[in-house]
Design a protein around this nucleic acid. Structure first.
Length: 266
DNA sequence: GCGACAG
DNA sequence: ATCTTGTCGC
């Protein structure tokens, strides 16, 4: 698939001020409300065992939703972007692309480093995902325009941000405690999020896996809306696609595929 | 100036 | 993200 909003394609040659200005435009174009074909009403309620494994397989007469996971690996100054597409829990397509990274990692400007490779990979994709899970933040971002939002808005596809740590915002409760699977801790905007009112719910910490033993504990995932998805639905989608591991299956498979593709590059 | 900061 | 041994736990 190709960008629906070419003007938002991340350009690494922009000045930092220009990048930030573009992010404000992207946040403005982003929709943090449900506008996807993956039956949010059904997924929004308590997931059944079947839904947990296949995400919406029980939707009456509806086509099985197509979910894609996106992740990157790096080799020197090259970024390897991998996309794995699942339908009914089965991998139906995998594509990857390799692009040079033009700028270093700068907190808040990640999409300008990795976005090019991601869009190049999407250009090779033949399926049209109903929703994509992107590694990194979505709305949980200084200007509400994290990687998931940037990619989602540029392609105009429903997107969810799945990060392993918190970029900004304030959790309702400490994230350092041990919580049982299923726990959701709201993340609200604070003064570091300059584009929306303090107190706005911009995402959740979601405990998708936990150890039985009392000693150590697993950190929750940080889930936020990327585009055309509400915060609670984003968390629902992550839970519905998780299957025994901390990361949701699409993301986990994209992660290993990125490493696999990386090996064939170095 | 100091601290914080997705991947 | 990446560089990496050992170690804990099921």
């Amino acid at each position: 698939m190709e960008p629906v909003r070419p003007e938002f394609v991340p350009d690494p040659s922009l000045s930092q001020a220009e990048m930030e200005a573009l992010q404000r435009d992207i946040a403005d174009a982003a929709r943090f409300e449900d506008d996807l074909a993956v039956s949010p009403a059904r997924i929004g309620s308590e997931p059944t065992d079947t839904e947990q494994a296949t995400l919406g397989e029980t939707c009456d007469g509806a086509e099985p939703p197509i979910v894609a996971g996106v992740d990157q690996a790096f080799v020197g100054d090259r970024a390897v972007s991998a996309i794995v597409v699942l339908r009914d829990g089965e991998v139906v397509e995998r594509v990857h692309a390799v692009e040079r990274t033009e700028i270093p990692y700068i907190p808040g400007l990640l999409s300008f480093r990795e976005g090019g490779a991601i869009l190049a990979a999407f250009a090779e994709l033949s399926h049209e995902p109903d929703v994509i899970l992107v590694d990194g933040s979505g709305r949980i971002h200084f200007r509400e325009a994290g990687l998931a939002t940037h990619v989602g808005v540029t392609l105009d596809v429903p997107a969810v941000g799945v990060a392993k740590s918190l970029l900004c915002g304030t959790p309702d409760r400490s994230l350092d405690e041990k919580y049982p699977v299923g726990t959701r801790i709201p993340i609200t905007a604070d003064e570091s999020v300059e584009t929306c009112a303090d107190g706005t719910r911009i995402g959740h910490a979601v405990q998708t896996r936990q150890y039985d033993s009392r000693n150590r504990h697993i950190n929750p995932l940080i889930v936020s809306p990327g585009h055309r998805v509400a915060a609670s639905t984003a968390a629902d989608l992550v839970e519905a696609t998780t299957d025994g591991y901390k990361l949701p299956e699409p993301t986990r498979l994209a992660d290993s595929y990125a490493d696999e593709a990386k090996a064939s590059v170095e």
